[in-house]
């Protein structure tokens, strides 16, 4: 299996962005049974993806407000437009 890990690392990444085909899923599954490094890589990307999901959640809860002067400016633009 030439270029196996290189190709598998690309597929591993894609599995976080799209639904893999059945053949691709089997290819990954099989490769993971024989390759500890790719298995670790998959594990670390899974952790990374949870980290970003958690940051997204935190960001949404953050209490960020639009600066008052920007709000005022928009307010007057809208008032003129009405």
């Amino acid at each position: 299996m030439k270029h196996a890990c290189k190709r598998v690392s690309q597929l591993t990444s894609e599995s976080f962005d799209r639904e893999l085909s059945l053949a691709e899923k089997l290819q990954l599954k099989f490769h993971f049974t024989i390759c500890g490094l790719c298995r670790s890589y998959h594990q670390s990307l899974t952790t990374m993806s949870s980290i970003f999901a958690h940051i997204r959640e935190q960001d949404l809860k953050q209490d960020i407000h639009m600066p008052a002067e920007a709000k005022q400016r928009i307010q007057s633009v809208l008032a003129k437009e009405k």
């Binding site: 890990c5 670390s44 935190q58």
Partner: peptide, 27 residues
């Protein structure tokens, strides 16, 4: 740019380690 992390035959030059840290604690 990923080429440099793999050898000619496509095996890892870099050794990924599995991360078992708790994602929430890390955040």
């Amino acid at each position: 740019p990923t080429s440099m992390h793999f050898s000619e035959n496509g095996s890892w030059q870099h050794s990924p380690s599995a991360w078992r840290d708790n994602p929430e604690a890390l955040c």
